[in-house]
Amino acid sequence: MERADERLPGAGRMRPCAAAFVAGATARSRLPLDYSVASLRLVDALVDGLRKGGADRERARGTLFGLGAYVGEVLVRRAGGEWVDLDEEQRAYFGQPVGVRMPDGRIWNPVGKVHNRFEAGGPQESLQTFYLLLHGRARRSVA
């Protein structure tokens, strides 16, 4: 039997996943998804809109994954992180097959963080605040 996380792409496919999500989202509307830290406020609003619109987690799964890939790509581009495939113990802890390793070696779970925002909402789960309070960021942006 196939586990749900086995259907998700590995670390090497996350950048293209984020790019495909941005292309699809911006083709329908003029969303400023430019991989900036400021754009994470828009991600917060998009996740909140899904929740308030009545989408259940299963129906929103693809969109939430795309938003998580986008958030992770912001960490990669702006904070010096890199996508990594998680080991078995990390997968069990995070509930995801991939994460972002920061320059200090810490692993973060942007896909899971988006899911948390969807489930709990509220300012304590803000993706923009997540980035701003993130430990292990590079001192300057990485393109």
Rank of each mutant, 00 (worst) to 15 (best):
G122M: 03
R117K: 13
D56N: 08
G66Y: 08
V111Y: 07
E89N: 10
E119N: 08
D34L: 03
L64Y: 01
G49W: 01
R91K: 08
G24I: 00
Y35L: 14
L127G: 13
A120S: 03
G122A: 00
Y35Q: 14
L50P: 07
P123V: 15
D44W: 05
R117V: 08
G112K: 07
G136T: 09
N116K: 10
N116G: 07
F130C: 08
G49S: 06
P97Y: 00
E73R: 15
A138N: 09
E89A: 11
R91A: 06
L133N: 14
A79R: 06
A60G: 02
Y70R: 08
V22Y: 04
Y131T: 10
P16S: 00
A143V: 08
T129Y: 01
G81F: 02
R13Q: 10
F94R: 05
A69F: 06
A143R: 04
R7C: 07
G49N: 04
S126D: 12
G72F: 07
M14E: 00
H115E: 14
E125I: 13
V71C: 06
R91P: 13
L8K: 02
G72H: 02
E119R: 13
R59C: 03
A55M: 12
L42D: 02
G72Y: 07
P32C: 11
M14N: 07
P97L: 01
G81Q: 00
V74C: 14
A27V: 05
V142D: 09
A11C: 02
S36P: 14
G112I: 09
A4R: 04
P32T: 05
S141I: 11
F94N: 02
S39V: 09
D85T: 04
P9W: 00
G12H: 11
G68S: 01
W83R: 05
N109M: 05
L64E: 07
A11L: 03
G112L: 11
D85V: 05
A20M: 06
D48I: 15
D56P: 02
D5A: 05
C17Q: 12
E119G: 08
R15Y: 03
A4V: 05
G24F: 09
P103L: 02
H135D: 12
R101F: 06
Y70G: 03
P110S: 08
P123Y: 13
L67C: 04
A69W: 05
V142A: 10
F118S: 01
E6M: 03
G66S: 09
R61E: 03
V22E: 08
R106F: 04
C17N: 11
A27C: 11
R41T: 15
V100T: 04
L86W: 09
T26R: 11
G121M: 12
V47T: 01
M102S: 13
M14P: 01
L8G: 01
S126P: 10
A11V: 06
E119S: 14
Q128N: 10
E6V: 02
V22C: 01
S126Q: 12
